[in-house]
């Protein structure tokens, strides 16, 4: 029962934030909308016992990444709005048509069809097995996935170096 209430609230927040991201004319509002979605999704993680991931979501995403976004928005200028005229008028029609088809199809399947979202799902959820505490996540992370873990370290190093190189961009002197 608690889960149902939390799910409805969080889902509503996530969707509202997402719609704000897309529709807001000012990027600042988009960023705030995204922030809302990230928090709502974090709530959904907690509901599903993914404690560590939820914490990381809040600390890294909502904390660090969104700060970075806002910083760049401020750097580039908040007052710049998108132009009204569309360079690709047909794109809107196309995207609208595709989206409409997908929505209709998905709704049709969800409502009328006997659609298994997770076909291999096995009965009731085992609270013990899926309790995503730090200890529980750490064990597979440092055993089965240790190679991928090391690779992410390399990836982050490269990303940091790449960011520094791009930031060193200077206009050529005449």
């Amino acid at each position: 029962m608690v889960e149902t209430i939390l799910f409805v609230l969080a889902a509503a927040g996530a969707l509202a934030g997402a719609v704000t991201v897309v529709l807001a004319r000012n990027p600042i509002y988009s960023a705030v909308g995204l922030l809302g979605t990230l928090f709502s999704v974090a709530v959904l993680y907690v509901v599903q016992l993914a404690h560590l991931v939820a914490a990381v979501q809040v600390i890294v995403y909502a904390g660090a990444v969104m700060t970075l976004f806002l910083f760049v928005i401020m750097l580039i200028g908040v007052d710049k709005e998108e132009k009204r005229e569309e360079n690709l008028p047909r794109q809107r029609l196309w995207v609208g048509a595709v989206a409409g088809v997908i929505i209709l199809f998905a709704a049709g399947v969800a409502v009328f069809g006997d659609f298994a979202w997770v076909p291999a799902a096995t009965g009731p959820v085992d609270q013990e097995a899926t309790n995503g505490t730090v200890q529980a996540i750490a064990e597979p992370l440092f055993t089965d996935w240790v190679l991928a873990f090391e690779a992410t370290a390399l990836l982050l190093t490269i990303a940091a170096a790449g960011a520094v190189v791009l930031a060193m961009f200077r206009r050529k002197r005449n």
Binding site: L44, Y45, Q48, A50, V53, T122, T130, G132, P140, L141
Partner: peptide
């Protein structure tokens, strides 16, 4: 996350 929970598997979270 959701699928991982439904499948009783932590790998989804990883």
């Amino acid at each position: 996350i959701s699928a991982g929970r439904a499948l009783n598997d932590l790998d989804g979270q990883v």
